[in-house]
Amino acid sequence: MKKIIVFLLFTFCVIEGQAQELKWFTDVKEAVAIGNKEKKPLMLFFTGSDWCGWCIRLQKEVLKTPEFAKWAKENVILVELDYPRKQYQTAEIRRQNAELQQAFGVQGYPTVFFAKGVTKNGKTNFEGLGSTGYVAGGPAAWLAVANGFLAQKKK
């Protein structure tokens, strides 16, 4: 019995550790630079992390799974644009997130945009590839939608 409990605990820790290894950028300029260097689009996650029920559900059911972690490492640069009610954010991050919310026309949460960022003369422009939000059905269903947007990029 002890061996089973130890094995289950170890398995849970490995799975949880894999999901947490992902690097989520909060500075979009840094993410754009890395995306251009690695030739990967950005996945911009607009969220209300501490109050939005659907955002929390998307995190739990998809974004914190091993399937998503594996996919994300291979396909995108992750950017979290958070609009919390209780958590502290610097004025610079709040301003950046507000500007991006307006630029992308985000009206509800969660919203996920896939885009290629290009910085020229200190200004960043985005080429949109598509957007989604919460998709029922877990990682497989959500990733099918995301892969559809990324397939358009390759055309």
Score class of each variant (00 low, 15 high):
Lys37Gly: 05
Arg85Met: 07
Glu30Ile: 07
Lys40Leu: 12
Thr124Arg: 01
Lys123Ile: 05
Lys155Phe: 03
Ile34His: 11
Lys40Phe: 02
Met43Leu: 10
Glu61Tyr: 05
Lys123Phe: 09
Leu42Pro: 15
Thr90Asn: 03
Leu42Thr: 09
Ile77Ser: 04
Leu81Asp: 10
Gly148Leu: 09
Val62Ala: 11
Gly48Asp: 14
Leu44Pro: 12
Pro84Ser: 00
Arg85Ile: 01
Ser49Lys: 10
Lys40Asn: 13
Gln96Ile: 09
Thr11Glu: 15
Glu127Arg: 04
Glu16Cys: 08
Ile15Asp: 07
Phe46His: 09
Gly128Ser: 14
Ser131Thr: 08
Cys55Phe: 14
Phe104Tyr: 07
Lys3Gln: 09
Leu100Arg: 02
Lys60His: 13
Pro41Gln: 01
Ala115Asp: 02
Ala146Asp: 13
Thr132Trp: 09
Ile93His: 08
Gln152Ile: 14
Leu42Gln: 10
Ile77Thr: 00
Pro84Asp: 02
Gly122His: 07
Cys52Val: 08
Lys2Val: 15
Leu44His: 07
Asp27Pro: 03
Ala103Arg: 15
Trp51Asp: 02
Phe7Pro: 04
Thr119Gln: 08
Gly53Ala: 15
Gly17Arg: 11
Lys153Met: 14
Cys55Lys: 07
Gln102Leu: 09
Val28Cys: 12
Arg57Ile: 05
Trp51Gly: 08
Ser131Pro: 11
Phe149Trp: 00
Glu92Ser: 10
Ile56Lys: 14
Leu42Arg: 06
Gln102Glu: 15
Glu38Ile: 06
Phe104Ser: 07
Ala144Trp: 05
Val79Arg: 05
Ser49Tyr: 07
Cys52Asp: 08
Ala141Trp: 03
Glu30His: 03
Gln101Val: 11
Ala151Met: 13
Lys86Ala: 00
Lys73Gly: 06
Thr124Cys: 10
Glu74Pro: 04
Trp24Pro: 03
Ile56Leu: 11
Gly133Asn: 05
Lys70Tyr: 07
Asn121Ser: 13
Thr124Trp: 04
Phe104Met: 01
Asn125Tyr: 04
Gln20Leu: 14
Ala72Trp: 02
Lys116Cys: 08
